[in-house]
Design a protein around this nucleic acid. Structure first.
Lengths: 339, 339
DNA sequence: TTGAAAGCGCTACCAA
DNA sequence: TTGGTAGCGCTTTCAA
């Protein structure tokens, strides 16, 4: 392997000079820099990650804890991950993948063995058991989602409460009086997943505020689950003319079932989806939606981690404002049968 | 931080003894082992990853190169990843995530900076540009997929050629005479993605062998894409009674469109899907399918990498035999209109 | 503006 | 069965 000494010899300088050229931590004459950079390229030198980590206590690795459950929307998770790797690379960092299954012990292991400089945690719960551990580690950490007690941890996410409000307000503005929420899987609610609860909060509050009849139901991410959910909505709240669907996986099934029941979208039923923008167009009808800004959130999570590593960061909770785009699946409410 | 010397002092032994207890590379008296292990637990010791890597030239990290394209089926990719992390952890290894976008240079970087012990590559193309680099690195590597010239690289995947044959044979056995393939995105074919081509190969060969009329079309993973694809199939090959769909993303759209055209499944149209087993049941009808064994493949990839690291491995190409499960979406062919 | 050299924490060789 | 210790490749302090 090519070492820093090889480069130094080749360029006719000392190893420390090579190190400084690479890190930019002290000024180097133009001529020396040029020679060193040439040698680096010529020899194809890459610093040994372990040696660097040992000497500098910086690994240039970010740990990302992802959920592997299938009840979460997998493509959405993947978009976060994609955005995170990409921006990590922009900061010359790599991403280490951990699973939520490893739990708090996994976080301790990462910290104690100095495998990563910072930890980014996805799929945060309301009563998040990893929060105390994360605090005790005294290491840069970013949560994607907001637990009940974030303490001094940095959090970033879409403002799901506002998103819930926005969806309801849109339907209310169109004159709908009876609306329903097709939510995530029951399991997602049961374990107190942060985003699900926050969305529900905004949905309920704004429905009450605007005087709407509103019914919120969790929904298993299967065709049968959706059918059951829709059955219940139409039975318990006949005359429903607006549906908010916060569960991308069942959108195709929802549209298929509405069609099967002769409920036309948006004429008989308005539908607002909560999903990444690039998923609104694959369903035969362009969906009115509140965007989940996966790219922004993933990138922001990495940036906030990097800022902590640079030592110039206050703890903060960064909630991105929701953006609703009106497309073809919502319309002014009429008086039509919906059951 | 807790170092190996801290543990040694606490247990009243030398650092090297602690190291040997942990690695199991030489025999240790029961008593000493007990004392050391107690100290390790008591102090919460985890070896410093960088130091270990520097001294042993082993990182206990596996690099996994994933595609972040959206034209590939994301949940399937995620299942591979999940299986890979989980089995890597079983071997006390972590997974580093690289993106295909980094290309050959990314592989070189990983190797040169000794960031990972082995590399697992997903989304392999027929004329895979990363193969020569991988060979030159002389490091354990596993491809998920099979390139045209694997050389002495280890490959693992479902036997997609056999899978294509199996689907056709199933339909032929049921008496279907005109069948079609709804394939992956055109882009997937265009870049010569290994699994797409191999499946197509098996499909075409067996259709010819069994004397079937067969039409294979790529399909964009959108509702409109599917509609266009289905239009073309029914127009260019009227009387088609069997469809093989090798593109999980469009399965909901396919079923919805068939219903919209009054083509009942399986009465008027038999449908065979190629997808992971846990995705056959979310569509209102249980689909006859050939399983993509994501868990097995992901796990096997890791195992083959570990075996190479242990130095006891021959290069091999491991193709898993397809398994077709008959469910409710295929039936004996009748004489019915399909256009 | 540059160089010399002391560690960082661990593994594994050499001795005992 | 155990201990001592050189050295892995780098960063960073101290000196020049």
């Amino acid at each position: 392997m090519v070492t820093i000494s090889d480069v130094a010899r080749h360029a006719g300088v000392s190893p420390s000079t090579v190190s400084y050229v690479l890190s930019g931590k002290r000024s180097i004459s133009a001529e020396t820099r040029r020679r060193v950079e040439r040698s680096v390229r010529k020899l194809g030198y890459h610093p040994h990650a372990g040696a660097r980590a040992l000497a500098s206590s910086r690994t240039n690795v970010l740990a990302l804890v992802v959920p592997l459950r299938v009840d979460l929307n997998v493509p959405v998770v993947m978009q976060f991950v994609g955005a995170a790797v990409t921006s990590a690379r922009a900061y010359d960092h790599d991403l280490l993948l951990l699973t939520k299954d490893e739990g708090p012990d996994g976080l301790r292991r990462i910290a104690a063995s100095a495998i990563a400089d910072a930890i980014i945690v996805m799929d945060v719960e309301f009563a998040e058991p990893r929060v105390p551990v994360l605090q005790s580690l005294r290491r840069p950490a970013v949560l994607i989602g907001v637990p009940a007690q974030p303490g001094d941890l940095t959090c970033v996410d879409l403002d799901f409460t506002a998103a819930g409000s926005t969806c309801v307000a849109h339907l209310a503005d169109l004159g709908h009086r009876k609306i329903a929420l097709v939510g995530p899987s029951p399991a997602v609610y049961e374990r107190g997943t942060s985003y699900a609860g926050r969305f529900r909060l905004g949905f309920d509050a704004t429905a009450a505020e605007r005087g709407l009849r509103a019914l919120a139901r969790p929904c298993l991410p299967t065709y049968d689950g959706l059918r059951g959910c829709l059955d219940e909505i139409l039975r318990r709240q006949p005359g429903t003319t607006g549906i908010v669907v916060h569960n991308e996986a069942v959108v195709p099934a929802l549209l298929a079932e509405l069609r099967a029941r002769r409920l036309r979208v948006p004429r008989d039923m308005s539908v607002v989806a909560v999903c990444p923008d690039d998923m609104v167009d694959n369903h035969g009808i362009a969906l009115t939606s509140v965007a989940i800004p996966t790219a922004e959130v993933g990138q922001l999570a990495v940036e906030l981690a990097m800022r902590q590593l640079d030592g110039v960061a206050q703890p903060e909770i960064r909630l991105l404002s929701p953006r609703l785009t009106t497309r073809d699946s919502t319309a002014i409410a009429g008086r039509r049968r919906t059951s």
